[in-house]
């Protein structure tokens, strides 16, 4: 029994750390879902777009991928703002399907654009962090990059939480998500607010993309995989709370790594999908949703 637990120590730690990364992948989707009430089907592709942007930045300046965030975050935020302002805002309030389909079209456009520019080759954001492991205790070695992912995610979520609770715009975003009409009566231009919210969401996608690029290989077509992970995080964690989303990430990460541990590496993704389907079936509002 003891040796069994001992054996599980590594996958559990890895799963939780990976979960941190999943949390940051899901947070942008969760924000837009909660605030604009729209599922951004292009979210995964925006994450991968950020990975490529980081890659491009690294070819110009030989710096660490994490430092490229100085460039990648603003660029991604601007892209998000423009997409919301020029495209998605125009189909809001016209039913569920048009925004969904516009985002879907955007996803396909992004994938093919990336394919056109970067070829289908696998890429990574090379850094010395990627290959190092650190040992915690005598038996436990974990990849350093997982730890970095986790810490960066935590910092991001702490900053986001500060933003939403302390700044005028953060509060206005929350107000608009509570009651769009009432927010307008307060003098808030909700469509602009939505665009800023999308900008922030794609800013988090930028962070997620750089972390993903440091941790795994990526291709132009990897986006949808992360979309489904992000959706899983949102569904498991429920809408409307940063902490819930983070917890959702941890659960999904843990489930995947444990699944891979017991069933083989091929089943890592499968476990995540199955959990998503089960939660969708029995409690589509999410495990941690109130009421």
């Amino acid at each position: 029994m003891l040796s069994f637990l001992n054996e599980l120590k590594a996958p559990i730690t890895n799963g939780l750390l990976l979960g941190g990364l999943y949390g940051i992948i899901g947070i942008g989707l969760s924000m837009i879902f909660g605030i604009v009430r729209m599922v951004n089907l292009a979210h995964g592709d925006l994450v991968i777009l950020a990975s490529y942007l980081s890659l491009v930045t690294m070819t110009f300046f030989p710096i660490s991928p994490l430092l490229t965030l100085i460039v990648v975050i603003p660029v991604m935020a601007l892209i998000g703002f423009i997409v919301q302002y020029c495209l998605l805002n125009r189909v809001l309030g016209k039913g569920m399907n048009p925004p969904l389909l516009v985002a879907f079209g955007l996803s396909i456009i992004l994938q093919n654009l990336l394919l056109l520019v970067f070829t289908p080759d696998a890429r990574t954001l090379m850094t010395s962090i990627s290959v190092k492991t650190i040992s915690l205790g005598s038996f436990l070695n974990i990849p350093l990059v997982y730890l970095v992912d986790f810490i960066v995610s935590l910092i991001t979520i702490a900053l986001l939480s500060r933003f939403f609770n302390r700044t005028y715009m953060g509060k206005a975003i929350r107000a608009a998500s509570d009651d769009e009409g009432a927010a307008q009566l307060m003098g808030i231009n909700t469509r602009t607010i939505y665009s800023f919210a999308m900008g922030i969401a794609t800013g988090t996608a930028a962070i997620a993309g750089v972390l993903v690029g440091m941790t795994f290989t990526f291709y132009p077509h990897t986006g949808p995989e992360y979309l489904i992970i992000a959706f899983g995080v949102v569904i498991v964690g429920g809408l409307g709370s940063l902490l819930g989303t983070f917890l959702g990430g941890l659960i999904l990460g843990l489930a995947q790594i444990l699944g891979a541990h017991f069933l083989g590496a091929g089943f890592q993704l499968l476990c995540g999908y199955l959990i998503l389907l089960i939660v969708l079936t029995f409690k589509p509002t999410g495990l941690f949703a109130k009421g």
């Binding site: 599922v39 089907l41 569920m96 399907n97 969904l100 949808p224 489904i228 959706f231 091929g266 089943f267 993704l269 499968l270 999908y273 199955l274 998503l276 389907l277 969708l280 079936t281 589509p284």
Partner: peptide, 26 residues
């Protein structure tokens, strides 16, 4: 299960089912 999901959930649910099949078959 899939008809318990509506709108966006249905869309993602069906997609996830297909992805699951893809992994199973491979």
């Amino acid at each position: 299960p899939i008809f318990r999901m509506r709108g966006v959930y249905f869309a993602i649910g069906t997609w996830t089912v297909a992805e699951t099949l893809r992994i199973l078959f491979s």
